[in-house]
């Protein structure tokens, strides 16, 4: 299944970019296995031939955040920012599968690249211990109790560090942290109200993209405080220009 998606990208001569950590992990490691194991590649190519596809393993697999950090570059982003999110406390949530299993010599326990991106858009990265702890993933369906407990732990840690917004790099993590926040509140008698935003939403705000075009307004945990902050910054900027 993964090889089919990779083969479709390969046919068009394109790189393969995944916005989701799980998709990224599967695509990245499938690509490596196919490059390293000719027998496996033969077997998979026999199957792909049923759909007139073929895979050589020449496609580069990237996560969307790598496109911004490695291909665009933090310096370039910093230069392009028109509305720096000064003073906004953003907790970078890496989750699991972007940094695990281990690839080459990457830091699987305390990575720093997401903090770099948050600094580049003018915000303050929150330093907290659970940034690579699991959000529960699909256990939210198959073992609801366990997943809600895992989400609770993350929200509590972020709240302890006065987090304004949790930034995510995976739509699944975003759903667990954001959509299930009310269920966590009801289950644990807590009163969390921490918006979770996919990192491109924050990036977009800093680049001056209209909130509506970033999907802001569709969330269940209101981003209004973030927006209010954002707008007051704008007013502040304008006052500075005068």
């Amino acid at each position: 299944m993964v090889a089919r998606n990779l083969a479709l990208a390969e046919k068009e001569g394109l790189d393969f970019v995944a916005p989701c950590s799980g998709c990224y992990k599967n695509a990245y490691f499938t690509n490596i296995h196919l490059q390293e194991d000719p027998d496996l590649a033969d077997h998979i190519n026999f199957a792909l031939a049923a759909d007139n596809l073929h895979i050589d393993g020449t496609t580069q697999v990237k996560h969307l955040i790598e496109v911004f950090i490695d291909d665009v570059g933090l310096e370039e982003i910093e230069k392009t920012v028109t509305r720096p999110l000064k003073g906004l406390r953003v907790a970078p949530y890496y989750g699991c599968q972007l940094v695990r299993p281990k690839k080459d010599d990457e830091d699987v326990e305390n990575p720093q690249f997401f903090e770099g991106l948050i600094s580049a858009i003018g915000a303050d990265p929150v330093d907290y211990g659970t940034k690579t702890r699991c959000c529960g993933g699909s256990l939210i369906i198959t073992n609801r109790k366990a997943a809600l407990d895992m989400v609770y732990e993350l929200l509590q840690d972020a709240a302890n560090r006065n987090t304004d917004v949790i930034a995510t790099i995976c739509p699944m993590c975003n759903i667990n942290l954001e959509v299930y926040q009310r269920q966590v509140n009801r289950e644990y008698g807590t009163d969390f109200s921490i918006p979770a935003m996919y990192f491109t939403q924050l990036l977009g705000l800093a680049l001056g993209v209209a909130p509506g075009r970033l999907g802001i307004g569709k969330e269940l945990v209101s981003m209004a405080p973030t927006l209010l902050f954002y707008q007051s910054e704008q007013v502040g900027d304008r006052a500075g220009e005068r």
Binding site: G95, C96, Q97, R100, P101, K102, V108, E109, T132, R133, C134, G136, G137, S138, L139, T142, N143, A146, A147, M150
Partner: peptide, 21 residues
Amino acid sequence: FWSCSSCYHCTVRCPAGIDIT
């Protein structure tokens, strides 16, 4: 194993190098 969320934290920490996930 049905409670495993596949976060690979055990795998990267296992001193015996077992892919527990």
